[in-house]
Design a protein around this nucleic acid. Structure first.
Lengths: 340, 340
DNA sequence: CTGAAAGCGCTTACAG
DNA sequence: CTGAAAGCGCTTACAG
């Protein structure tokens, strides 16, 4: 079974009728519709995507751009894995397929995205790992493709975004620690120019000010977001002139290396230094002592991304101008023993 | 800039000439070629994928199917992330794009693949997480789409595959442990019907036989491949009538939960029970004591998959019948302290 | 309710 | 070396 023409010949119908029957058009008689659909199922006919997309001007596909540099894997749960499951759940009733577009490490993300957009292989896009300066957003706005950003960016045109509440987490964590008597609180932040670095740092700074604690720039430690980065963090914390009594982590992997290196040095989280992690995941439960961290539903986040994207795709179809939508995604504290 | 027609108008040429220039055809004059390419770059023109694919009968895209159930994330390194980087490196010079096709948990993998194949959105495919009985392989062989399987399957038609040497790992691990005097060696295997379960178990069994140790079915423990599965494994090991002195793990996540639960029970890997993990990853280094495990280059594996797939795509283009190719991917022991 | 035909954006034999 | 035209596989106004 090659194309719709063969199916039409086989049924003694024209391609037009077959197409209408397959697409459940009301004009076609019930009998013909059933007959065509039965034959298609039996012969395994599925419309060629290129032909359909060319004619309709839409691909029925949504893309999720993956940055090569992103440390998106954490233990048995995976940030993107959960989000993608939620996204698919939202797209499924609309018969939109989700494909992931991994940008190679050797390719510029902006160029990569330009290529993907221009080729028109997707009707909508999710981007993530938004940078402080992220030219991808202007590109997407200008090309008028529906999209939603997982993460904010600096000074950019209006668009739709959803971002984890990094500032809220920083504020909550500082308040908790101050409540336990800590005054010298360090924060581990990404060394890269990812936007959350600035949001998290600003939240941390604001929380200190609210608690009348002077901001000490030496306590903001840019680290590589990995297990090894966490181990290096331990050494840097201990090397500080006046050792902090608590530390906030902005990433899940850091705790692994931090715990390990601290244990080697005979320092126990929760007893000798308070630690608050970022996102709760299976690993946090299997660290001793349990890591206090913040909980969110990845599936719900994916659903919210999907709904936002769908509303923008609908707006584009109806040539409406979609309202810009920004949303902070809250996270709830899941207590551990590591905060002391 | 909408389509090639607008670009042609803008240049005062016909679409044919513009197309030839953009595709670096030799017939077109150098001057015209330069002029067209400069204008395309300036105006940001990129050929519409659907138009091109429809005409050429090829999409210049390769797909990698991701199973929803697969625990593919392990700490800061991700099995598929590394493999995909290697794949992209191989595809890049051929100007093939890689897209990932995540099968939703709610969808049957076989139906999903059938849809993807029929829509003709990719010129070639990589599948993974091959099951003992995996109808996807017959489907792909029958549809004549070039593909390579990461993993073997039972009784299936001839095709291309690359599989980690699970049996070799099991044999090596058993030999090492026997060399240290162990005779009662347990093996944790996946509880699912994934093919590697059988390959690993068979290798384990063969190694026992070679060392004149009776096979005890109670020592083969099907577990969920997760941190929690590792914790449950600890309890199951200790509940066995005659406690094993060593255990092999078939997955990276198991060690996290196993170590944690054993520590709670006052049992130390390497001293009280020998443990050999499966794939070396950053987490293995950050467990105490270090987990002995097996090393492989994910990028090299991705490159091998890419080369195999490319040779099959080439064969299909030339209407050659590709030779079936199977390859075991070796893994080298990276010593730890956990093996005692 | 179905058929005949146009056309989506490309590429490529065929002329000249 | 470039132009004019056919056609890839679909969908959909337009007839009847």
């Amino acid at each position: 079974m090659k194309g719709i023409g063969d199916l039409a010949n086989h049924l003694g119908l024209t391609v037009g009728t077959v197409s209408r029957a397959l697409n459940d058009r009301p004009e076609v008689s019930l009998k013909t519709r059933k007959r065509v659909q039965a034959a298609a199922a039996e012969l395994g006919y599925v419309p060629n995507q290129s032909g359909r997309a060319l004619r309709k001007g839409a691909t029925n596909t949504v893309g999720f751009m993956l940055e090569s540099g992103t440390a998106f894997a954490v233990g048995g749960d995976n940030f993107f894995h959960g989000v993608i499951a939620g996204l698919q759940q939202t797209l499924e009733p609309r018969r939109l397929d989700l494909i992931l577009l991994p940008c190679a490490a050797t390719e510029d993300p902006h160029e990569f995205l330009r290529r993907m957009v221009s080729r028109r292989i997707v009707d909508g896009l999710v981007i993530s790992a938004t940078q402080r300066q992220d030219p991808r957003i202007a590109l997407l706005v200008q090309s008028r493709i529906p999209f939603v950003a997982l993460g904010r960016s600096g000074d950019v045109p209006e668009h739709a975004w959803i971002d984890l509440d990094f500032a809220g987490v920083a504020k909550d964590a500082v308040s908790r620690l101050v409540g336990k008597g800590h005054r010298r609180i360090a924060a581990a932040v990404p060394a890269s120019e990812i936007n959350l670095r600035y949001v998290f740092t600003e939240g941390y700074r604001a929380a200190l000010a609210r608690n009348a604690i002077d901001f000490d720039p030496n306590l903001v430690l840019p680290v590589e977001l990995s297990e090894a980065g966490g181990a290096a963090l331990a050494d840097r914390l201990l090397a500080l002139p006046s050792r902090p009594s608590a530390v906030l982590l902005v990433n899940e992997l850091l705790a692994i290396g931090l715990y390990h290196r601290l244990a080697q040095l005979g320092i126990q989280p929760g007893r000798d230094i308070a630690v608050i992690g970022f996102r709760e995941n299976p690993q946090a439960r299997f660290l001793s002592p349990h890591l206090g961290s913040y909980r969110l539903s990845l599936a719900d986040l994916g659903i919210a991304l999907g709904q936002t994207l769908l509303s923008r795709i609908d707006a584009a179809r109806e040539a409406r101008r979609p309202e810009p939508v920004g949303r902070l995604w809250p996270m709830d504290y899941a207590p551990g023993e590591s905060e002391g």
